[in-house]
């Protein structure tokens, strides 16, 4: 089975102190650490597990700057065979739709049976790129997948719905699945592992190689435009408990007594 996995390098923001940059259209990323999008780490692991079981190849593709090599190399170290980077100034500012369009042109050049993407990206959170990509390629898809069983020329997959309910669907190959976290346990990549693939070639394509015109991608090829970013308004914000740890502990015990009925 030949599998393509679309991956994205994203800034780690949950733990970070973030601020808005001068443009007012994004956060200041200069001091942030980047990593492979969480959902994509499950997608690449799933692809490698399938390859280990069934043979075939895994190709990872990422649209982004040269820095994306870092995430592509991580995937190679995990066991991917090939890596492709899609880089062009014309791609900057692409929304979910334009991103899928760029990815589609790259995917068309490669034979595949299955495409995996993450359910969503941690940064823009569109939850859109994978499903649009399937539509542009004219193949069936299933989103939010948390289990895959291969049955000859088709798959039996579980889609995660709300409240613990799952939907089982059968889908013919070639197909695209967007992968949900928890489907597997992504393997650990050591520094040694990354070093081993440091010299592996990462192919890079721009708009001309993909036969894309500048106005089909990037800002001009996008349907939506980000006007400005701002900190979420604090509604009825929490009352912050301050003081020494001892004092905070005392307040918590009072709240538990008054509101939780703790004796």
């Amino acid at each position: 089975m030949n599998i393509i996995v679309c991956i994205k390098r994203v800034p780690e923001t949950t733990d970070a102190d973030i601020s808005i940059d001068k443009s007012g259209k994004d956060i200041d990323k200069s001091s942030l650490v980047f990593d492979l999008n969480e959902w994509d780490s499950y997608a690449i692991e799933e692809a490698i597990l399938l390859k280990e079981k069934l043979g075939g190849t895994v190709t990872v593709i990422s649209m982004g700057g040269e820095e994306s090599n870092e995430s592509l190399r991580k995937c190679l170290a995990m066991g991917a065979d090939d890596a492709i980077r899609l880089t062009d100034p014309a791609f900057n500012g692409s929304d979910g739709f334009a991103t899928a369009r760029v990815l589609a042109e790259a995917v068309r050049k490669i034979p595949y049976d299955l495409i995996l993407t993450g359910t969503q990206a941690e940064d823009d959170g569109y939850g859109q790129v994978g499903v649009v990509l399937a539509e542009l390629l004219g193949i069936p898809h299933a989103a939010v997948v948390n289990r895959i069983e291969v049955q000859d020329k088709r798959l039996k997959v579980h889609r995660e719905l709300e409240g613990g309910l799952e939907e089982v669907v059968e889908i013919d190959l070639p197909a695209l699945l967007t992968i949900q976290t928890g489907i597997n346990e992504p393997r650990y990549v050591s520094i040694m592992g990354i070093r081993k693939v440091a010299k592996k070639e990462i192919k890079s394509f721009g708009a001309p190689e993909l036969n894309l015109k500048a106005d089909e991608v990037g800002l001009s090829g996008s349907d939506i435009r980000l006007e400005k970013v701002f900190l979420p308004p604090v509604g009825e914000a929490a009352e912050i408990l301050e003081g020494k740890p001892e004092e905070i502990a005392l307040k918590v015990s009072e709240i538990l007594r008054d509101k939780g009925g703790l004796s």
Binding site: E122, G125, E227, F230
Partner: peptide, 20 residues
């Protein structure tokens, strides 16, 4: 139409417009 969406796991809000 203009919309508000969240970025970075809800730490930032963005106002977004449709181009077309």
């Amino acid at each position: 139409c203009s919309v508000i969406r969240q970025l970075y796991g809800g730490k930032i809000n963005a106002s977004v417009s449709f181009v077309k």
